[in-house]
Amino acid sequence: MSASDDKSGDIMLIPGAEDTIDPATFEQILEMDEDEVEREFSRSIVYDFFGQADSTFKKMESSLEKKEGEYLKELSELGHFLKGSSATLGLTKVKDSCEKIQHYGSQKDETGVKDITEKESCDKLKTTIAQAKKEFLEVKDVLKEYYKDTD
């Protein structure tokens, strides 16, 4: 929020961007914008992603709470799903956490190698989902800041 004086258009100058966003990946999306002021394309992608992430986190939380059916498998799939879009946008931290969610959901450790118990999975999922969500909100602030000066 403090970077409202930043007119250079470089998202990496916004505080918090440096370790949450992969500049190369994000910039190749920015390159697709036809208008560098409006940034209609990347903006709509990013804001759609916000909605997508919000609803995915909600699903994750309720799924982990209810523990119905193959909830772990579902959590793994949700993690994979969000991993894909965050990776495409270059939101590295969110992506890494989502990858962990994917592994925990399939009852593996965070590297996807060793098996873990359902209990372990649930515990790890709980903290990791919370962490992913926090990271998402952080990067959301950065992105909102970035798109704000053309609002």
């Binding site: 394309f41 992608i45 992603f49 997508q52 799903f81 894909g84 879009s85």
Partner: peptide
């Protein structure tokens, strides 16, 4: 592609 973000960016490219 099931993920809308990937799909849109892929299409754009």
């Amino acid at each position: 592609e099931d993920d809308p973000t990937c799909r849109r960016i892929g299409s754009k490219f």
